[in-house]
């Protein structure tokens, strides 16, 4: 089953200068789909375009078969899509508890119970709930960001380089946790720099370069593909597959 489909997306901040020239992608339900590619390929832009933060000038995005192209970013949560930005993904001046209460503020009576459930899931955060989120370590921040994403009971989570700036151990923890989320039926669309690690945990992989699709396929196959190795080791562009 497909959860999220992006078709022939053209998008960018300035109308005449698209960063994404034509990108298509399908994320299967309860699977991890990873987007990789060299710097400037448009990976983050793609995720932001899906989240409604970068205007899509042509192409469509659909969620469970329904068109949601250019959504209002604040309505994505209601559609069941959570977005975890790469950096600055928590409110540093609010406490951990306030961060969660903020995303739960439309949950009404359920809010307290859902917050407690999240604290049960992330005991390390529960211990520090009255502290300013800005005081957390990098790994803990990432977990808080994930907890904030989970607060809305999403069916799809978009994540922009969750392992960026983390120690290898913390990065591993975050990525493994992300993988585990699919067991509850959550669809994950992930941008990663950490290619090997990403391919190991992902099901499906898309490689972008210069705003276009280059290669895609099962993550396992790409992991053993010499061409993929060449892109990342040699940094050369490959002809479209």
């Amino acid at each position: 089953m497909t959860a999220l489909v992006a078709k022939d997306i053209v998008a960018g901040y300035v109308p005449d200068l698209p960063i994404l020239k034509s990108v298509s992608l399908t994320a299967e339900t309860a699977r991890v789909t990873v987007i990789i590619g060299p710097n400037g390929a448009g990976k983050s832009t793609l995720i932001k375009a899906i989240a409604g933060l970068v205007p899509v000038s042509s192409g469509t995005v659909s969620l469970h078969g329904q068109k949601i192209t250019n959504p209002r970013p604040d309505r994505m949560g209601a559609l069941g899509v959570a977005y975890v930005p790469q950096s600055d993904n928590i409110f540093r001046s609010l406490t951990i508890r306030q961060n969660l209460d903020l995303v739960l503020r439309n949950a009404g009576k359920e809010a307290a119970a859902r917050r407690d459930a999240l604290f049960a899931q992330f005991p390390a955060l529960a211990d520090k709930q009255a502290e300013k989120a800005g005081a957390l370590s990098g790994g803990q921040r990432q977990f808080l960001a994930v907890a904030m994403a989970l607060a809305i009971n999403p069916s799809v989570i978009l994540m922009d380089e969750p392992s960026a700036g983390l120690s290898p151990k913390a990065a591993q923890e975050v990525l493994e946790y992300t993988r585990a989320l699919t067991e509850n039926g959550v669809t994950i669309l992930l941008v990663e720099q950490n290619v090997k690690q990403a391919l190991r945990l992902a099901d499906q992989c898309y490689i972008l370069a210069d705003g276009r699709n280059q290669v895609d396929g099962a993550a396992q196959d790409l992991l053993n593909d010499p061409v993929v190795g060449q892109i990342y080791l040699g940094g050369k562009r490959v002809a479209p597959a």
């Binding site: 989240a51 933060l53 209002r72 970013p73 604040d74 309505r75 994505m76 949560g77 209601a78 977005y83 930005p85 600055d88 993904n89 928590i90 409110f91 540093r92 001046s93 609010l94 306030q98 961060n99 209460d101 903020l102 995303v103 739960l104 503020r105 439309n106 904030m148 809305i152």
Partner: peptide
């Protein structure tokens, strides 16, 4: 939570938006 939303918007408007706040 309204107060948190105000502070969230002040700190990071774009993150506030993806956190469901109508700017």
């Amino acid at each position: 939570t309204f107060g948190y939303a105000l502070r969230a918007v002040a700190e990071n408007p774009s993150l506030a938006q993806v956190s469901g706040i109508n700017l």
